[in-house]
Nucleic acid binder design. Structure first.
Lengths: 145, 145
DNA sequence: TTAAATTAGGATAAAATTATCCGATTTATT
DNA sequence: AATAAATCGGATAATTTTATCCTAATTTAA
């Protein structure tokens, strides 16, 4: 619900990579899919998207892997990860799927939902990768089970 | 996002049926899929579910069709339609897909999202079919485009 | 220089969701 | 009784999403 499975994996992967990067550790695909409990090959595809979007950096070869630098992780917001993978549907979509749902042409739940959507957007625009990865790092939250 | 296409169609269909029932008119599959802009055969399947769930009543034969009695439409909540079609995932699912996301075992966005989820649940538990169908009936909201 | 470990990326497969088709059944009208 | 119009329900098809496989390219280390 809300996000595609790919997007869920993508968020968890970036959070994990950011967490490792807190301690200056790079991580590879195996680490990631083990830690977030996701199918390896599928996760690899998602990581490619994140690399292309400039959210994650990657290096090939032995000792290769993925990383996110600390400065970036403070700037990167949840919305950036979501958009990189699911596109920007979250911004525009109507709960009932109307193409032009708006104040002037609302669906039957537009007015009830608009505040919820506003809060949701506020949240994904505010929450940073740094916030999430630190919370995982100090054991306040988890990435699997 | 949030709801499956089937669920979107299901909500719009029930709202339309309820609206027609306001004026004691029954409607048939063609009316419905025309009015909510949905594939006919697929909509038929969804209506079957709604009939089995006791949300919509149906009758066969010439002059047959679908209806919802007025009293019911005041009692039936959005959540009932959603549950009839998508099951009760909305109640339990975690944004990041953790199976056991909870206060004691939260995902990295659990605390940011819990208030939004609460509002969403409140909304779907409060909004009735009657609310939505009346708003459509007086032209305050639309079911397509 | 060779071997091993890694990401990149194309091709394909599996599963889930969405959509269609068709015959059976029911019911009102003629 | 025959016909037409409607839902019901099983089978199937198309599309999208999720997942896997395999080869190539890259990089480190022995």
């Amino acid at each position: 619900m809300i996000f595609s499975k790919a997007c869920e994996y993508g968020i968890k992967a970036t959070v994990f990579i950011a967490q490792k990067s807190l301690n200056n550790e790079r991580c590879n695909l195996t680490d990631i899919s083990d830690e977030i409990d996701s199918p390896k090959a599928f996760t690899a595809k998602i990581l490619q998207k994140l690399v292309k979007a400039g959210i994650v950096n990657s290096s090939k070869g032995k000792l290769g892997g993925f990383g996110i630098n600390m400065k970036d992780s403070k700037k990167i917001k949840l919305i950036d990860v979501i958009t990189a993978i699911d596109g920007n549907m979250i911004e525009k979509t109507c709960v009932l799927g109307l193409k032009k749902c708006s104040e002037d042409h609302p669906c039957p739940v537009h007015n009830q939902f608009k505040f919820i959507k506003k809060d949701l957007l506020k949240m994904v625009h505010k929450t940073t990768l740094s916030d999430m990865s630190k919370s995982v790092d100090i054991g306040l939250s988890c990435l699997k089970i």
